[in-house]
Design a protein around this nucleic acid. Sequence first.
DNA 1: GTGGTCTAGACCACC
DNA 2: GTGGTCTAGACCACG
Lengths: 125, 125, 125, 125
Amino acid sequence: MNIIINSSSMIPIYEQIVDQIKGMILNSTLKENDILPSVRSLSKDLKISALTVKKAYDCLEQEGLTVTIHGKGTFVAVANRELMREEQRKEVEADFELAIQKGRRFGMQEQEFREILELILEDRL
Amino acid sequence: MNIIINSSSMIPIYEQIVDQIKGMILNSTLKENDILPSVRSLSKDLKISALTVKKAYDCLEQEGLTVTIHGKGTFVAVANRELMREEQRKEVEADFELAIQKGRRFGMQEQEFREILELILEDRL
Amino acid sequence: MNIIINSSSMIPIYEQIVDQIKGMILNSTLKENDILPSVRSLSKDLKISALTVKKAYDCLEQEGLTVTIHGKGTFVAVANRELMREEQRKEVEADFELAIQKGRRFGMQEQEFREILELILEDRL
Amino acid sequence: MNIIINSSSMIPIYEQIVDQIKGMILNSTLKENDILPSVRSLSKDLKISALTVKKAYDCLEQEGLTVTIHGKGTFVAVANRELMREEQRKEVEADFELAIQKGRRFGMQEQEFREILELILEDRL
DNA sequence: GTGGTCTAGACCACC
DNA sequence: GTGGTCTAGACCACG
């Protein structure tokens, strides 16, 4: 399971897990009915508390992305990919919207936002 | 004092106050040397604890946006606009960074972020 | 009355007044039985609240440096100058002692304290 | 945790805590990545409010001396010794400044400050 | 009146 | 368990 945890990030660990598994389901790294790693093995793998992994799996199940079968494991549900994609997109759009609103309150202009975006994207190259 | 508190928001009340007062200082609703409402009067006004207002005022002072004179009140500081500008920029950059991190966890590519930015900017035209 | 108030200082205004009048009594700018300015006139002079001047005069009287005669005014008491001088000296020594203790906890050496002292003294030239 | 609180002192309790923990970090009683006592345990230990300990820890974090990880605890930060040194120097300078201001209000001359400094330094030899 | 500090206890999110 | 926030009310110093 290719999950990367940044424990010094402001984002809760369980949320980082949720988001990355969501991504894997979306881009078909995880397919319908695939089994997720067990809570214990993943927690061992990532060197974090099993409770944290459990919370992440709970979130996924609550959103209908996975199904847990007692004594068997946690499986990727039959998902409406289109809908999921749309919701993720909206989440990110909302975050951008908030950031831009704040910038506008600070008097920033359109071009400055584009500069900031490019700066951050380049950081990753 | 035109401050709106959303107590059901995940954003701490004191931070909501800080942000809104920052905004007022920036758009000159509050000018240099203007006096802020007293801790007690604002807490009464907003129907929140005086300590919560105090914490917000402490944040503002810590950032150098206000000056407190004991027994007198809290006043808008003579601002170092260069420095303020720089800090605002950093704030917005941090928000962008977070939004982009989330998008990446969802598997979004660079071009998609640019599309989202343009969409939001155009919405406002 | 040659008193200088620094309202942005961390030292309370009333204490600044007390200290400066103490100094004047010591160096004989104010002599025994001299009358101090009235609370009202001094407060007007310094553009501060009369209550603040009153508090300063109360302190002086409590320390036995002045005597107030109702309806007449406040007068410099017959003081033991030697003792006063000694007490002031001890106050300042104690403040230095504290500052140096802190510096030593920080690992500063003797020469560094001398440098700091000279720097501050020069600032005033 | 060997912290001594003087509740009758004029120095706020939270500041007493900050100073003593600073001292421990400086003289390496507390080393990098050491964990501080939890807010609750220390408050219980010192028989003071948890909020007061919290405020002290906030100060330390704000100065970059500690790092707090939510749900984990508060840890001694990897220190930027250059920066720390500079801040310590400023602290001591400010204390000297105050002592000298007081002396000047008492009418002391430059040479007297030098004498006091030398007296205190010699006391320690 | 103002701000500064402190208390005792509550609820939440996170691990 | 941890820290983060908030409350309602108290006492003090300052003006």
